[in-house]
């Protein structure tokens, strides 16, 4: 791995991350954050853009097939030079693959085509309630139970919490390097997702998805 760039000014200019992601607001507003990120060197800014594009799942087209997601993931992993950025993406994809597996098993579907290090493992341990991952991902049992209920918020909280804790542990290894910026942004995105949960916005998003899926039939009865 190439030696990381140092960003003493940038890192010191970012407000401290809270201990937990369940807070009222993001530690730094987006416009201000964008301004601070202008201190990044161009090649690092490129990596940040790639990572942020991945993290913004909401902006992804709803009708993207599993194959397209896999192809996008492969492209991202082959073009991203920074090892930590690749690790962040891979970790999030692992969680999505596991949850996708839990959902598919409930519906009697075969294992997900997924990506990441656990795909084959899940396939081999499809009958195991926790896919044989109880040590690596102890949260699977709880999420599996919650999928029986309609408590989506709790599932989301567990999902974000697992990622948050992992990123926080990683952040303890770095000081004033580009990796600190990457981990800060990944955690900032988690807080943004958590703080932007909103019933009205959720309804709008749902209606938007329905409209997109119905395409020209959307306004049939109007």
């Amino acid at each position: 791995m190439a030696r990381s760039n140092s960003y003493y000014t940038l890192v010191a200019s970012l407000p401290a991350m809270p201990r937990y992601f369940e807070v009222e607001r993001v530690p730094i507003a987006q416009p201000r954050l964008e301004k601070r990120l202008q201190m990044l060197k161009s090649q690092d800014a490129e990596v940040v853009e790639q990572l942020r594009a991945f993290l913004l799942w909401d902006r992804q087209p709803w009708d993207r097939t599993d194959e397209e997601v896999v192809s996008h993931y492969d492209e991202l992993m082959s073009t991203t030079r920074n090892r930590l950025a690749r690790h962040i993406v891979a970790f999030q994809m692992d969680i999505r693959t596991i949850i996708s597996g839990l959902r598919r098993r409930r519906r009697g579907l075969p294992p997900p085509p997924g990506v990441g290090q656990w795909t084959d493992h899940i396939r081999k341990n499809w009958e195991d309630p926790q896919f044989g991952l109880r040590w690596q991902h102890p949260w699977i049992a709880e999420v599996d139970q919650l999928l029986d209920t309609t408590d989506c918020l709790r599932v989301e909280r567990i999902k974000l919490g697992v990622t948050w804790n992992h990123l926080t542990r990683l952040a303890e290894r770095y000081f004033f390097s580009f990796e600190v910026v990457l981990l800060y942004l990944a955690r900032w995105e988690i807080i943004r997702r958590w703080t932007s949960r909103d019933a009205v916005l959720g309804r709008q998003r749902f209606e938007q998805l329905v409209t997109e899926s119905l395409d020209e039939y959307a306004n049939l009865y109007e």
Binding site: Y8, T9, V11, A12, S13, L14, R36, F176
Partner: peptide, 13 residues
């Protein structure tokens, strides 16, 4: 240099 850069960053906050 390192400490000075951090001081400049902190001044923004």
């Amino acid at each position: 240099t390192r400490a000075g850069q951090a001081a400049c960053g902190a001044m923004l906050e």
